[in-house]
Design a protein around this nucleic acid. Sequence first.
DNA 1: ATAATAGTTGACCGGTTGGACAACCTGCTT
DNA 2: AAGCAGGTTGTCCAACCGGTCAACTATTAT
Lengths: 201, 201
Amino acid sequence: MGRISDAREKLLQVAFDLIYDHSYGTVSVDHICKRARVNKGSFYYFFRTKTELVIEAYEEHWRLKRPDYDRIFSTQVPPLKRLEMWCDYICEVQRKRFEKYEHVCGCPYTSVGSELATCDEKVRLKAMDLIERTVKYVESAIVDAKREGLVQVDNATITAQQIHAYIQGLLLRAKIYNDLKILRQAKPTVQMMAGARTVSA
Amino acid sequence: MGRISDAREKLLQVAFDLIYDHSYGTVSVDHICKRARVNKGSFYYFFRTKTELVIEAYEEHWRLKRPDYDRIFSTQVPPLKRLEMWCDYICEVQRKRFEKYEHVCGCPYTSVGSELATCDEKVRLKAMDLIERTVKYVESAIVDAKREGLVQVDNATITAQQIHAYIQGLLLRAKIYNDLKILRQAKPTVQMMAGARTVSA
DNA sequence: ATAATAGTTGACCGGTTGGACAACCTGCTT
DNA sequence: AAGCAGGTTGTCCAACCGGTCAACTATTAT
């Protein structure tokens, strides 16, 4: 019953792309509609507000990326290898973006999270939510590494949070310097952070 | 000759404050003028564009903060103690902001740098510039620590960059989680990163 | 006093913003 | 073939955006 449409999906994808390549503040609903070739009326048929759109766009983005994370952090892969593959994956994703848009775009979730953390509580919570999911993968890798006696850590949860924070900081640096080379350092530093004993809080 | 005015200084301070507590995109020139009790005509007497204002506001902010950094990273202080004091200083600054605005605001330079890195080249370059200055302090602490045999590092420059990236990531996390407790982990992790051997690139 | 300098004022601009809307199509179901 | 849910269209809105401007005023040096 009724006609079917891919307008919603197009809007989600275009919104993600534009906001990731620029910022939430500089991308307007009009821009998104123009690029998606959808009328603004249709936009507001699918989404109540710009905030709601961005939240759904990022959730959709995660839905598409999740298989990659499941593969990289599979228990079939040795724990420390998972972290290496994760670093390589990040570099690769950033490289592809750079080739397409000539910008190092950093992490989409923390970029929009940082921009709106103090302005839009719903976006802040969604960014937290998405970050949490990634940290969980890192944590399970650390737990497994510890169980196999590969690393010496007091607290796997805290260690995972520290490694994730470092990776986010590195991505932020790469974005601001617009320099992919900065990401080369990720792998050795992550191994070091995972392998060395962290002083627990 | 001519009348004197503190309008310029008020605009710089209000602009920094509003943008730090919200974002570049959500703070308008009108907001800044209203809060500073300055007419928009005067605004454009002192600054050519909003971009120019934000750049000058952040430069001014650094000018005010620099004495703190010179004190913390003074050669009179033992090198590893400098890093500890730096972490304490960051916690303290964030705590004060939080009490005033009920937000963890993170690092002002990387916040605006992240927001505009792909949109405004001048702001991106200024953010790089300001980051570079802080990294220099960290680097000199690592160099001194190495000379005194307190740490084992291959490359002080890279180590300083890694520590700075980590701290930025932690501040970003604290901002998105709106949680000051996250910053408690800074000191032990920084000591670990400074003290352990990092694999050079 | 005068003139030059330095800063102020508030109205004004065209364009854009996020959002609302009634009217209108389109294709499935019965 | 008729009914209707599902989606589309383009116009309209008031508010706001960054930025401009000519006229005005206060201060200081001469």
